[in-house]
Structure formats: C-alpha cells, structure tokens
Amino acid sequence: MAKFAALIVAATLLSLLLVALIGIQVLGCKADPPSRSETAIMNWIKHRLLVRGKDDKNPLNDSVADGKEAFSHYCVACHGLDGQNTGVPFADRMAPPVPSLAGKDVQSYTDGQLKWIIDYGIWPSGMPGSKGMLSKDEIWSIVTFLRHLPPAGSAGSPEMYSH
C-alpha cells in the first residue's frame, strides 16, 4: 500500500516536472533562478529516485589530502577551492545555481550517492560526469574531501579568476 502511494506521489511529481518542462519551453530558456518549489521537488526526486549508489561504501579512509588534490584538477572551476563557490563569478547565474557542497542538500547524500554524482553528473544541471576522466580512487578521495571541506573563504579563489 505504502509502495503504491509512493508510486502515485512519484507519478504526480514527474507529471508536475513535465508541466514545468513544457512551461520552460513556453517561457524560453533563460537561466533564471529556480523557484523554491521547483528546487524542493527536484531535491526530493534526486535524493530518492535519480541518484543511485546509496549503499556503496567509501573504501578509502584518510584520503582528504588526495581528495583535495583531485578536486583541484577542474572541480574548482565551478565549486571553488573550498567547495563553497568562493570566487566563482557565475555560481548564482546558473539554473540551477552551483550549490554549496557544504550545504545540507549535498551533505545529506550518502557517500555512495556522492560517488555516483561525480561518476555520472546530474542532468540537466551543469554538473558533468567524471568517470574515466578521474580514477575510481580519485573520485572516492574527493568524496572524503567533501566530508572535510575547509571553512568557506579560507582557501582563497581559483587562480583562473584572479587574472
């Protein structure tokens, strides 16, 4: 019964999403900030339905330094050195905006889900998949780094935006 109810809810949400998508078609494709409800719906769908790998466990411990280095290859271009968008000029000009990786929405994913997101990216956000571009160990070490992010603003701005 509970399963059936969940299915109904999911179906309703998906049709709402469809309506929203049609709405986007009608309104155009400006990168306006999403509404609160849109964000809430998408968050729920991502956490519960779309992002897999929930039960995968991080095989690496003590890899914060490795993760920091792997993160610095190109993640910093959008997420900043601190994972909290510090110094990223376009972070809130995207739709959806670049989230703070220290925020609840991201931190409430399991380690396995974070690995899945880094592997495959999130459509239709700007988040790309990195599987094959980074090694498995590097991706797991980034997951470890995400759990030990430095305080916002403490790591400076990505070099590319300072000249």
Partner: peptide
C-alpha cells in the same frame, strides 16, 4: 597503478 598527475579527459583510464 594509476596516472597520478592529471593529464586530461582520459586520465582516469590511464593504468
């Protein structure tokens, strides 16, 4: 052994 210096789009597959 994995490539340990980021070298581009296929870096993660370099073993």
């Amino acid at each position: 052994g994995q490539c340990s210096v980021f070298c581009g789009a296929g870096h993660g597959k370099m073993k």
